[in-house]
Structure formats: C-alpha cells, structure tokens
Design a protein around this nucleic acid. Sequence first.
DNA 1: ACGAGCGATGAAAGCGCTTGCAAGCCTTTT
DNA 2: AAAAGGCTTGCAAGCGCTTTCATCGCTCGT
Lengths: 331, 331
Amino acid sequence: MSSIRAPRLDDVASQAGVSAATVSRFLNNPDVVAPATAERIRQAIAATGYVPNMTAGALAGSRSRLIAALVPDIAQSLFNDTVEAMIEKLAEEGNSVVLALTGSDNHRLDAEINMALARRVDAIILTGIVSDPETRERLRAHPLTVIETWGLPDEPIDVAIGFSHRAAGEEMARFLRGRGYRRPHLVVPRSTRSERRANGFVDRWVRDGGPEPTRLEVNVPSHFGQGRLSFRALTDLAEMPDVVVCGSDWIAQGLIVEAQAAGMRVPDQLAVTGFGNLRLAGDMRPTITSVDVDGSHIAREVIRVLRARAAGDNVEQRIDVGFRVIARESA
Amino acid sequence: MSSIRAPRLDDVASQAGVSAATVSRFLNNPDVVAPATAERIRQAIAATGYVPNMTAGALAGSRSRLIAALVPDIAQSLFNDTVEAMIEKLAEEGNSVVLALTGSDNHRLDAEINMALARRVDAIILTGIVSDPETRERLRAHPLTVIETWGLPDEPIDVAIGFSHRAAGEEMARFLRGRGYRRPHLVVPRSTRSERRANGFVDRWVRDGGPEPTRLEVNVPSHFGQGRLSFRALTDLAEMPDVVVCGSDWIAQGLIVEAQAAGMRVPDQLAVTGFGNLRLAGDMRPTITSVDVDGSHIAREVIRVLRARAAGDNVEQRIDVGFRVIARESA
DNA sequence: ACGAGCGATGAAAGCGCTTGCAAGCCTTTT
DNA sequence: AAAAGGCTTGCAAGCGCTTTCATCGCTCGT
C-alpha cells in the first residue's frame, strides 16, 4: 500500500477548478453553488475518491454532528426501541450517535458526561435519571441541548420528553380496580421510575379504599428469571394476591411461566400485568396486559427538538408523550 | 449566561505558568512532566474548569479515539452483550463508540461505513456480515483496523473474531443424534449465519445417516412471537418432528410456550433447542438447551486486537473464540 | 572538573475544514 | 444609462490541539 496522502478538500477544489471554500459550501449546502459548478465538483469528488474529514469540519464549524446517548444498559432495556429509532433518524441527517453506558451508578454517569462534553457533542440524550443535583446544575450551566427522555421531571435540566410514571401507576390501579381485583401485589425494580409508578399505584389504590398492596423489590435490570423468582416469593405472603403488577413485561412473562408450571391458570387464579408493552407482551400466552409507551414517538420528538434548537427556535421544556394501558388476557 | 469563552489549553497553560505543549503532554501522558509541574497543571485545570476539546485533539493528532460499531439492530440482538461489553471496556481507556445501525440491507451498511470513514474512526467493528465483495475490497484497501465479529470468514477483511457457524450446526446435530432424536425440524432465520449453521446441521445429520430434516424459514430479527407461529406451522408437516432446532433462544422460548399451551410436554413429546444461550435460556421452564457464545470474550479479544494495533504489534487474522452446546432440560 | 547524556520544557508549524468579508458579474429598477 | 441589488466565488483567518525539533539545565562518569 503506497501510502499516498488521502485527498483533501483542496485536491477536490483544484481538480474542479474552484476554491476550497466553494467545495465546502457545496458539501454542506449544495444549493448555494451554481449548478454547473456543482456538477464539476461532483465529478472531482468522484475522481479523487474524496471522503470529507468531519473532525476538521467539526473543529472549524464548532458543530460536531455527534449526539451522545447515555443509557443504563442495552442488554435488557426498555429504551432500546427509543434508542434504535433515534439512531436511525439521526443518521438520515448526517448525525451520529455515541452510545455510552452509565449502569445505574452516578460515577460512570459523570465520567460519560465529561466525555461527551470533551467531544463537543451537539446534544446529550439521557434515558436514565440523573439524580445528583450537582450534575444537574453542571449540565444546566452548559449552553448545550440536554434531553431527558422517558421521564418528566418537574424541573428538567433543559428539555424533557416522556410521561408521568406516577400517573401511569395510578392509571393501572384504576384499571385493575375497575376489573374487580382486590389484592394487588407489586414487583418493583429498584429504579427511580419503577418506584414512582409503584407509589402512584399504591396511593391511588389506597385512596380508592383498597387495602395496602404488598410489595417485592427486585434488582435492575429486570429480566425473565426475576419473574419466576417473584412468583415463588408469593408463597411468603400471608395471603395470595389476585393480581401481580410487574415492573416490566419480562418480569410478567417469567411470572406467568412459573405460575403455569406450578399449575395455576392465568388470569383466572392469578392475574398479571407488565410494563413497556414489548412485542412479547402481545405474543405471550396468555397475552400480557401492559402499559404502552411509544418509543419511536419519543425518538420523533427528540429529533424535532434537536432540529428546532439547530434552527434557533424555542422549544417546550416538558413534552408529554403519554402512555396507554393495553388491556389483554393476563389481567 | 455571560457567554465567556470556554477555557482552552492556553488558559490552563498560562495559569500554571507553563507552555501549552506541556499541558498537552500532561493530559496525554502525565508521567512525562515533572511531578511539581504536574501538580501545578492539575490545579490550573481545576481552577479554570478546563474540559479538553477532543475534536481539536483528534485533528492534530490524527487519532479520534472513536470506534464505530456497525450492528444490524439493538432491539432484539444476540450481539447486545458483545456490544455492551465492548462499549464498557473501551470507555475505560477513553475511547467512545459510535453505534450505527445497518439493518439487514447493504445500502445502509455502505452509508454507515462512509460516515465512519468521514469521522476518521480508529477502527470499525462489524457484527453483521458484509456480503458485498466491493464493500469488502474498499474496506480492505483502507489502512484502518476493521474487525468482523461473531463470524469467521475464510478471508477476513482485516481481523475476524468469532467462531464457525457451520461447526456449531454440526455439533448440534451430533449432540441431538447422541440423545437419540430421529426427526429434527429446523427453524431458520433468514440470515447468512443462521443458514450456515442450518447447513452444517443438515450436512452432518444426513452424513450420519439421518433423514433429511424439514425446515422453516423465518424473518429476522427473530423473536418470541415467531416461535409461537413456528410451532403452529408444525402441523403442516407430513410427520411431527421429535425435536425442533431453533435459530435463537427467543424462538425456542416462544415455541415452548405455544407447545405447552397446546398441551404438549417439552421435551417428552417435543424437544427444543435454541441458540445464543441468553439468560432466559437458563431461566425458562423447562430450561433451554442452547449454544453458548461468550459475548464478553469476543469483546475482550476486540480490545486486545485494538490495543495490539495501537502498539504496532502484529495480530492474528482469525481468532476463534469457540462455542459450547449447553445441555439443559428442553432437549 | 568537564563534556556527555538525559530529562523537562518551549516554540512553532501544522491538522483539514468553515465562514465572514469583499469582489466580480449580471440582472433589474428608476 | 447609471445605480442598486442579488448570486457566486475567492481570500484568509482561524478552530484548539499535537508533535517535532531545539534548548536548557542537571547529573554522572572518569
């Protein structure tokens, strides 16, 4: 491989008989150059095999076209649909996504935020909750677009796109009460949002005159196996519940499988609900009653906000995309 | 927000009473500056609140510390563990991962490769298969580290880390034959690798004197629901199989659930195997016999290769991480 | 005690692109 | 017919860092 220098903007420019500035303009905004010039540049690019250097472009233009997405994990995450949709849509406009994993601990979050700042990303998308007030302040101080997704904090760092988890919990309580259930049991992943939903559920349930629901906490990320364990843990309760409200569809699925293996009929002897409305919720036997959150809707709003910001337009601080209880067979 | 200029290297330098070069050295290799100087610089950084500009650094040093990971999808992917482990490990050394989605079509792959090249990434990690010979050539021509994972092509573009899918198929055939099964049926996702495994299975099975297995193709990405459908499709067969070999654990799980709902006992009346050895395989009722591929092992090798390349060392072209059939209850 | 050798630092030349400013050339307006 | 604009394009000054080369002290060996 005779290491010839990779072609630069200059090479294309001289090849096309124009200045580098014109080629740059063509690349970033084809319409501003005269059609004939554009054509010559196009040919020069093809002839030289030019591939732009976005690093140089980012430095000169102070616009990296890089978006940082900070998520707790991707192995088992409700956010994957959102993230996937976001990446796809951003790619269409020449943006790339740097995916960083924060786990559920604050230390890594901070490190990843620093990395994002160092890379001069155009925006940071958060899916986990940033609980540390200091970090929130630091982020708020930056003239950077920061989008919190899936939640809807009272005071967003910058922009929040999501829904009220408390309301979702309340709505599920209302729904199950309407269906005539009496003794709910909650399986709650140890995450801020799950807890918020659980609290919403309990408050509403009790306010409506129901007995205080029993409750089991499980680790995050939640998964199928925990559902099975959670079913077995039911035997520790003084009284068997008639419906188990699970923090995720995976837990619900595992719980159903274990219940059936134990010879119980779902929902007749034990009803179950999930959360997230993953594809499997509709596919399971019985199909799982769940709470739907439209991940691609969130992604769409993210894109809209990013575009608005780029155009200098104002943006709402809190965007509620809502949720829907999806009634199916399991409860 | 009084838009004061963000502090630069120069600011830190003058604050510490040294030149920018020294600060740069400290940042990239703390040991080369004198301890006393290092301490002054550290304080200056803290005092100014300096955050390095990696874009500028990348341009000047022609090293972006950016790795592109091209995957088909993340919503339902066997690679997620690998990708997650990779991102985590890379983050520890100050590298970031740009995640790009290629779906299963060549056009997007090409576009994402161009994007990666434009960003001057230090390496490209591929998890899907690059089937287009032209693209392979183009990549090969680049003096760039390209790592193909999960597969083990005869002629890697650069470096391949994975295992032989054909061998995995053969091994499963041997295993099931050893367990006394007679009439296997294959559920095969429409992906190059799944097909390779299926072919390995069939070849081996037939060579060992078994009857030609029946076969059903399903779309990718594969998921739970397809397992259910695949079970129902069994009724179309002339004869019921005694074991269904599924292209993924999700399919296996769905198939088991549907079989049980139909009143069949697994594995007594119908055995099932999966692929990927996802966590759920060990958690399912019955636990699912699967093929384990150590995603974090692959990730580890990726890191090792990247490090070796950075150090200028030579690297093997094909790294076989192997696989293991995990015998469980379902077959 | 003196030159060799080494460790620590500084000066300065880029890295490859973007963009404000100004110039040149037409078309339109008065 | 001259002035006023509107389009295109070129010039050149950076963007904030890395890295080569050279310099300056010092320590060390003899």
